[in-house]
């Protein structure tokens, strides 16, 4: 090994250690694809429930006028809530599996300092958003839930992108943009959810997988 090779090896060592110690780089693109797929399946179920409930409400209105619509909407709401929770759990578990596999392969601890830092930075905006949206629900304002989820999630991703692969920030920008547009199309939230949590994750996942994990 000649002098120049030795030097550039040294410099690339330094760069690699700086990067590995400050960013969680085993976030897998396949995780994005898996989470996006879960989101699409979830929205499909939710759309189905919404369709059926619309029909049920219409026929109820025709047959009996004194039906307790409030309790019906509560059942309907809780069914949607169940779907949302199940989708979230499925997305997180499947996303975790692929990232876990990748960090095992790279021999990096999946729950090290960098992963912790990433988690804290994604969670702060998301928990803030969660509490904010719960307050909206308590005041019976439902129209802003979908755009709110997208915006706060986007802010979380953008914030966390400093602690993982830098391209992740484009996912954050995309989610924020979709959420902002959704603010002016209240009632179409489900489509924006499918686009933001489904399609955008899948596109991001494919891109990241192509760029970093293909080989």
């Amino acid at each position: 090994m000649n002098e120049s090779e030795k030097l550039s090896n040294e410099l690339s060592d330094i760069k690699q250690i700086m990067e590995r110690s400050s960013r969680f780089i085993s976030l897998s693109g396949l995780s994005g694809i898996a989470a996006g797929t879960c989101a699409l399946i979830g929205t499909w179920f939710a759309a189905d429930v919404i369709q059926r409930n619309k029909a049920a409400v219409r026929s109820l209105k025709r047959s009996i006028t004194d039906v307790n619509l409030r309790s019906l909407s509560e059942i309907f709401g809780s069914r949607l809530f169940q779907i949302a929770i199940l989708t979230l759990i499925a997305a997180m578990v499947s996303a975790f599996i692929f990232t876990y596999r990748r960090s095992k392969k790279a021999n990096v601890p999946v729950w090290g300092t960098t992963a912790r830092r990433l988690t804290i930075n994604v969670l702060v905006p998301m928990i803030t958003g969660g509490i904010f949206l719960m307050a909206l629900i308590q005041n019976d304002i439902y129209g802003f839930i979908a755009p709110g989820c997208l915006i706060f999630y986007g802010l979380g991703v953008l914030n966390a992108s400093k602690y993982t692969l830098p391209e992740t920030r484009y996912l954050g920008y995309g989610e924020i943009l979709l959420g902002l547009i959704n603010l002016f199309f209240v009632g179409e939230g489900l489509y924006f959810w499918a686009a933001g949590f489904g399609v955008l994750h899948i596109v991001y996942g494919i891109f990241m997988w192509w760029k970093y994990e293909r080989n």
Partner: peptide, 11 residues
């Protein structure tokens, strides 16, 4: 030592 310092520069 290069490794130690590199890591401490960014953390």
């Amino acid at each position: 030592r290069l490794g130690i310092m590199s890591a401490l520069m960014v953390n």
